[in-house]
Design a protein around this nucleic acid. Structure first.
Lengths: 227, 227
DNA sequence: TCACTTCTTGACCGTTCGGTCAGGATAATC
DNA sequence: GATTATCCTGACCGAACGGTCAAGAAGTGA
């Protein structure tokens, strides 16, 4: 229970182990543990002691690698923003609205699925007033949203979809997909599942795509009545 | 800055002040302050000191009224569940799907709007794995969802709406409405607003109602093309 | 083998945490 | 006015917090 009682016992790393392997493994372990702990307890509620225990290292070692709690947290946020940016490719008026929106919903859903802890970390940051991300929200992300919004509007002008407010539409897609990571505990409790299977996620993705595309009157090539 | 330096100075309560008025006012003040602080920092991250300062009372007084941090937190959760339950009236197959769904979206949206701190408190609790609410989720709330789900299915059988999965539909409505409380910082940052006006909220409500009802193929009496 | 860098960690620091408590202030009852 | 019950709060407690540091262990290149 107390700090000294756990004998640490990192399994591998008996002897030797070439150049920087230990360092990379430890860093990876610390980042993964920290993501879990920060996601669950928020920035203030998380403790370096808890992170260190999850990573199987003494607290001092975590600080040796990461410098400070704040630095560790910022590094995690930046990693999550990179993952986010990776799926934010540009679109143009020439693209097919149905394809773009479906790809949007699907990739966002997969991000929540592949990195649930990171998603929750991000959610906790926003929930607390986004003290570290305000600049990003008001700058980079805002520009990205407005660029997309303009394309949506042009699609509407061309009669490819209903003239809905594009910003509210983006928020709708974000919230609906984010929900399955952030509110996982609620989803599992209510559905009585232990976890969401790949099949469940596929079903939800299909559901969201159908409802949202139909709801916005998106004209799709392979249009078919729902189900 | 330090504990002793703030001279407390609760304005009123000079002399007398009939039976229990002070008590009620202090309790209200503490609950409001605690809701803000817990919502922002989560259960672990919140400190009684911060709550006391927000309430304009010494920390000891907060503990005098509330007994413990845990008790205070549970009480806030229960208050939020009551507000939640207040808008969960029963529905039947005989009701009009369009009316029910719109009322559902609207009341949920108003709950997020009227009690943003409570909504965020709830979100933080779920985000952290719902340690205090697991029982509620797996019991009361699950039953409520399944009862509604059955009605949705019957509507679909009668051809009043598409045969979409009713549970995913409920989650969609929850997430889309909850978003405007929980991710307020993001919404404001991206839209460049200082706050959401009543008109904004009305616009969003209309948008969500239109997209979701149309997306589920709900047959409404006063059906009109979107916008 | 030896010098040198990097890694590892227990001990420790000042601060803040949730919670207790004694005892003074105030209000209610007779 | 005396008695009693309730309210209020500064001082204090042990534990846990983020962070520092010195000193030893382990790896590296000559």
């Amino acid at each position: 229970m107390t700090e000294g009682s756990a004998p640490v016992e990192r399994g591998a790393r008996e002897q030797g182990e070439a150049n920087g392997v230990t360092r990379r493994r430890n860093e990876r372990e610390i980042l993964a543990a920290a993501e879990r702990v920060f996601a669950r307890y928020g920035y203030r509620g998380a403790s370096l002691q808890a992170i260190a225990e999850q990573a199987g290292l003494p607290k001092s070692n975590v600080l040796y690698y990461m410098g400070s709690k704040r630095g560790l947290y910022v590094r995690l946020l930046e990693r999550m923003m990179e993952r986010w940016n990776a799926l934010l490719d540009d679109i143009s008026v020439e693209d097919d609205p149905a394809e773009v929106l479906e790809a949007f919903i699907r990739s966002k859903m997969q991000l929540s699925r592949r990195h649930p802890e990171g998603s929750r970390l991000f959610a906790a940051e926003i929930l607390g007033g986004a003290p570290f991300l305000q600049e990003y929200l008001r700058g980079e992300l805002r520009d990205w949203v407005q660029a997309r919004a303009r394309v949506f509007e042009q699609w509407a002008e061309r009669g490819l979809m209903d003239p809905v407010d594009p910003v509210w539409l983006i928020f709708l897609i974000w919230s609906a997909t984010q929900h399955y990571a952030d509110f996982e505990a609620q989803v599992l409790g209510i559905t009585g599942r232990d976890e969401l299977s790949d099949a469940d996620v596929e079903e939800i993705t299909t559901f969201l795509t159908r409802v949202i595309l139909k709801g916005c009157g998106v004209r799709s090539r392979d249009a078919a009545p729902a189900r």
